[in-house]
Amino acid sequence: MPRLMLTDDSWTLLSRIMSLTGRVYNKPEHRMTLEGILYRMRTGIPWRDLPKEFGAWNTVFRRFNAWLKKGLMMEVFQFLNRFNDPEWLFIDGSIVKTHQDGASVKAPSEQAIGKSRGGNSTKIHLAVDSGGLPVYFELSGGQVNDVIHGESLILGSPKAKIVVADKGYDSQTLRESIQHKGAQHVIPRKRNSKQGNEDIDWCLYRYRHLVENAFLNIKKYHAIATRYDKLARNDQSVVALAFALMWLPMWVD
């Protein structure tokens, strides 16, 4: 039997959330379907190679695809992260390589696939709360500059008192946007800046590793560390599921 990821308590919680969305009926077989999705996410194998213990691979894939069309994984993630601690908000972006099979799609830019130094890639733009737990994310092509998604990350996240980011978000426009929302910013300026960084709270800035830790947490899943999905919708849902798993320990003793 392949190694499973869900405890009885975890599945009870997830099945209840899935039912509350009104998009999925509560059926016992859904547990092994979700375990199959998690197994594929963890190992990165093709759907056809899914062990038989999870059921017929095409049945698992059809349910997976149906759930994604309904936005189920995003709803589960949003439900779990609603009790966040937004006093501090840390934002950052991280690139993942897109596999050649995932990149073989028409209009790749529309599927959040772009060309960066490493070839075809996707960038995950993420915001985490004071405890380092994910609260909002977006996808883009790997060549997109972090600061372009800075304002939308803040708009999509809970209102924070302080926003912390690295030099990649060095933009006066972004700073003014943060201040307009009633928050402070801790964003170092680049070396060629005339103003300097005397006003930066370096003690708080050191906690920026929390958002980097979140990326490390989800990149242990092979299907996220390397993108195999052609559609941005599918990749977004897989990432949302991985972030939802980070929240489970906060709900399940």
Rank of each mutant, 00 (worst) to 15 (best):
K123W: 05
S157A: 14
H180E: 15
V147I: 15
S116E: 08
I91S: 00
H209Y: 15
I200R: 04
G93H: 02
I178V: 15
A66D: 11
S15W: 04
Y221V: 04
D85P: 01
A225Y: 13
L204R: 12
S140L: 05
T43E: 03
E176G: 09
L68W: 11
G131S: 11
P46I: 06
G142I: 10
M41W: 04
V211L: 06
L13F: 05
M73C: 08
G22D: 09
P2R: 00
I218H: 04
Y169W: 07
S121F: 06
M250K: 14
I95D: 06
M246N: 10
T7S: 12
K106A: 10
D8S: 05
M246V: 04
F90M: 13
S171V: 07
D49M: 06
E110P: 04
I162V: 15
Q143F: 05
V60W: 05
I91C: 00
K52S: 12
R189S: 09
L241W: 05
I224W: 08
S140A: 05
A66V: 08
L231Y: 12
V186P: 05
N26S: 12
D170K: 02
G119L: 04
N197D: 15
R191H: 13
F77S: 01
K106Q: 13
F64Q: 05
P46M: 01
Y136W: 09
T173F: 01
A56F: 10
A240T: 07
K190M: 10
D85A: 03
V60F: 03
G196K: 06
P158I: 10
V76A: 00
E198D: 14
G102F: 01
N217T: 15
